[in-house]
């Protein structure tokens, strides 16, 4: 497969690894939107990224939120804003890339979904018989052009590594680009604060991607390693589902799959992708 011609995908900022995945003096070969690329960090610490078959053109690069970002096109917008990264007392855990054989859009859609908790993350993020999804709000916010789902509530037996016993968790979901999504979740130990969990999906080809995730939380009890393991366990449960959806590409026509009220975030996401003309990993 060769490089995508999808303008909506090419002109966005995409993650290609964690900052520490590209140490000084080293290179990292990877793939983005059907194009092989090479990232190098010079001994002075500056990262440069080029296409593997064209070393002359330097791609835009920035390092933020623990990760390295680039673009094959001309980014029309800034990277998403997450002011929480500047807040005192939060801990950042980056989980590293996990390869998943499906469309990057299926990954994002799965992340936006409350109803799968009792079945895919049984006894951790949900359990029968508490399966009902209450109504929530979902909107596309302008001028940011971001999807926000708010007032999401769900009963969870063990909502986070720091949670003991079941609780009703409050969630907000945010989609800032076709391949970037953030979850805001009630912090179990600080009233009124949100913990963040985010996915930066690196679309390699239309049916394979690396999923880079992070956790940005208030947590004094658990080690980084324990939190990393918790996130990895949850994500591996999702992966076993994600690699078994047929077709792998996300159908954007609402008639291709049966949706219910609880799926409103996914319906808005699919319509938003269609409006952008995004086709990478999609069935129009």
């Amino acid at each position: 497969m060769t490089r995508s011609g999808d303008r909506a995908a090419l002109n966005g900022w995409q993650v290609i690894g964690r900052i520490e995945d590209i140490p000084p003096g080293r290179t990292r070969s990877t793939r983005l939107l059907g194009q092989d690329i090479i990232a190098r960090r010079d001994p002075g610490g500056t990262v440069s990224v080029t296409e593997a078959d064209n070393g002359n053109r330097s791609l835009p690069v920035q390092e933020r939120y623990g990760h390295v970002w680039t673009s094959l096109g001309t980014p029309e917008r800034d990277l998403l804003d997450m002011p929480e990264f500047a807040e005192e007392g939060r801990r950042l855990i980056t989980c590293g890339g996990i390869t998943v054989r499906t469309s990057p859009l299926r990954i994002v859609e799965n992340f936006l979904d409350l109803a799968h908790f009792p079945y895919v993350h049984t006894d951790i993020l949900g359990a029968e018989p508490q399966t009902g999804v209450e109504d929530y709000k979902v909107e596309v916010r302008q001028p940011e052009d971001e999807i926000w789902a708010t007032e999401c509530r769900f009963f969870q037996p063990q909502a986070a590594k720091s949670a003991s016993g079941g609780q009703i968790s409050d969630y907000m979901y945010r989609v800032t680009s076709p391949f970037v999504t953030i979850l805001y979740k009630t912090c179990p130990i600080r009233d009124g604060m949100w913990d963040l969990i985010g996915l930066f999906v690196q679309p390699m080809d239309e049916e394979i991607c690396d999923v880079h995730s992070f956790v940005l939380v208030f947590d004094e009890a658990n080690s980084d390693e324990a939190m990393l393991h918790f996130q990895q366990m949850i994500f591996l449960q999702d992966r076993s589902i994600l690699e078994n959806q047929l077709p792998a590409r996300l159908p954007l026509n609402p008639r291709d799959e049966c949706a219910i009220t609880a799926d409103r975030t996914s319906l808005v996401y699919r319509r938003w992708l269609r409006d952008k003309g995004l086709s990478f990993g999609a069935i129009p």
Partner: peptide, 13 residues
């Protein structure tokens, strides 16, 4: 047919 009509998951799971 081995496919859920909701999000296409294989029913064999």
């Amino acid at each position: 047919h081995n496919r859920c009509i909701h999000r296409g998951l294989r029913m064999t799971l």
